[in-house]
């Protein structure tokens, strides 16, 4: 199963690198979104709380514009049935999840670099906490986005419905991550942020369990 999911992942990467459509569009999307924010801020000095919020807003919307492709492109190309023949649902989900994880980490590293360069309030005083938040936050984001993307691919209207369905599911994760990012700016110690970190980790655990349980039903529909 692992080798099969890995080869599915390689197939996605190859077909992505052949056109580079999604990656180019995503990077441009990030640049546009952040420049809109920078223009609207102008010369104002913004609070760390607001910086943390804006950071996760950009992460959320970039994820929403990029992560649905994994399943929607299969549906558009009409390759869903072939995939159903050659692999079990768990394998498919693992492969797609791996691809989305890599994509999420890629776009969020870019977003973080741009934020660090252009936002004065983006000063991380507790780097370990930020790293842990970043890793677990991205994992949760990728898991929820992947399972919702598989629902969207089967439903009729693909573009607009995706953020609508994902937002309530992602809200606990995003609120907690915003809180944790503020802690990183404040330099709160790791021990004081354990409660919030536990929420993020348990969110990841719950979502991955539910996703693997329910993906069978979506995929066979």
């Amino acid at each position: 199963m692992i080798t099969k999911s890995y080869s599915l992942f390689l197939k996605d990467i190859k077909s992505e690198l052949r056109t580079r459509y999604a990656i180019n569009a995503l990077v441009m999307f990030i640049l546009v979104a952040i420049s809109v924010i920078l223009f609207s801020i102008g010369n104002e000095k913004i609070q760390p709380e607001l910086t943390a919020g804006l950071y996760w807003v950009v992460i959320f919307f970039s994820a929403m514009s990029g992560l649905s492709r994994a399943f929607v492109s299969e549906e558009e190309k009409g390759t869903t049935l072939t995939l159903q023949l050659i692999a079990s649902p768990d394998t498919i989900f693992s492969g797609k999840l791996l691809f989305n994880l890599i994509l999420t980490f890629f776009i969020n590293v870019i977003i973080t670099l741009i934020y660090a360069a252009f936002f004065e309030g983006f000063v991380i005083n507790n780097f370990v906490l930020f790293l842990v938040t970043f890793i677990f936050g991205n994992i949760g984001l990728a898991i929820s986005s992947t399972i919702i993307a598989s629902i969207i691919a089967k439903a009729g209207s693909k573009g607009t419905l995706y953020p609508v369905l994902s937002f309530p599911v992602l809200l606990p994760l995003i609120l907690t991550c915003v809180q944790l990012t503020i802690f990183c700016f404040d330099g709160t110690s790791f021990a004081n942020a354990l409660y919030e970190l536990a929420i993020v980790v348990s969110y990841d655990g719950i979502m991955i369990t539910v996703s693997y349980l329910l993906f069978d039903f979506i995929w066979k529909e």
Binding site: I147, I148, Y203, M207, L214, F217, E221
Partner: peptide, 14 residues
């Protein structure tokens, strides 16, 4: 029916 059932379960765990 299937997709909305799946979505209610996913949303319910949050």
């Amino acid at each position: 029916a299937t997709l909305s059932s799946v979505y209610s379960i996913i949303a319910f765990v949050t």
